[in-house]
């Protein structure tokens, strides 16, 4: 049995390996599928749903769905882009994202997705939830106003750091990022060099005393949309 599978993404033939996800196969072929919770160094989570594609007409998360020979995949269509925009807008109104005063601005993946999609303002009303900030740790802080519940830190803590600092608690709209202590991040074994801190796509889990280290104009997404690096690989 051959290890290679061939799928079609927006009409283009893409070769992938058995065991790859749609997201990985697309990326290897230089096709960017927008994503937020997915991270190349972590296991798939499938929670943000930004990477939703249509597989033979059915919606599937590209980050969790393995490629199979003959799949007809739709990615860059008006319908899907509108849905992805809607999801990004949902995340903006669900939390309190004050980009103008956030240290992550310019390097934030949520913001970068909104830029890529050309979102001027969300179509949904802002919910302005009351969320808390944990500033107890000497080197790291959590600002839950900015948390998008992507679970990257949860996975990185287990998979890379070999710790269990984070896990989700609560459910539904009350789901939140929990920590392995009664109250304070300072009481966990979280450390500043942890992968879990590095992988946060937004400004929710941040290193202290870094601030606005990179000047405006030189930040990651100031000039090129998120995903440009992947698209540059396309032959």
């Amino acid at each position: 049995m051959s290890d290679t599978v061939t799928v079609t993404i927006d009409g283009a033939q893409v070769k992938g390996r058995a065991g790859q996800t749609i997201l990985q196969a697309a990326e290897a072929a230089g096709i960017y599928i927008p994503r937020l919770c997915a991270h190349n160094e972590l296991s798939a989570h499938g929670s943000c749903r930004v990477c939703t594609v249509l597989v033979n007409g059915r919606p599937q998360a590209a980050c969790t769905q393995p490629v199979a020979d003959g799949m007809i995949i739709e990615n860059n269509t008006e319908k899907l882009t509108n849905m992805r925009k809607a999801i990004v807008e949902m995340l903006f109104v669900e939390g309190n994202h004050f980009c103008m005063s956030c240290e992550k601005s310019g390097n934030c993946e949520l913001q970068a997705l909104a830029y890529r999609f050309g979102i001027a303002a969300p179509r949904y009303p802002y919910l302005f939830p009351k969320r808390d900030i944990d500033f107890s740790h000497p080197d790291i802080y959590i600002d839950r106003n900015r948390c998008v519940l992507c679970g990257r830190c949860v996975r990185a803590s287990r998979e890379t750091d070999k710790k269990v600092v984070f896990e989700f608690t609560g459910r539904g709209a009350h789901r939140r990022l929990g920590i392995d202590a009664a109250a304070d991040l300072a009481d966990t074994d979280a450390a500043v060099a942890d992968k879990s801190v590095e992988v946060c796509p937004v400004g929710a889990l941040m290193r202290k005393r870094v601030g606005y280290a990179v000047p405006v104009g030189q930040r990651k997404y100031d000039h090129k949309p998120i995903g440009s690096d992947i698209e540059a690989k396309r032959a």
Partner: peptide
């Protein structure tokens, strides 16, 4: 659904709050 959803994925977690609003 707002009370009983798990909150794992964005569309259900946020979308139902917005529909209800």
């Amino acid at each position: 659904f707002m009370d009983e959803g798990c909150g794992y994925c964005t569309p259900c977690r946020v979308g139902n709050v917005l529909l209800k609003e």
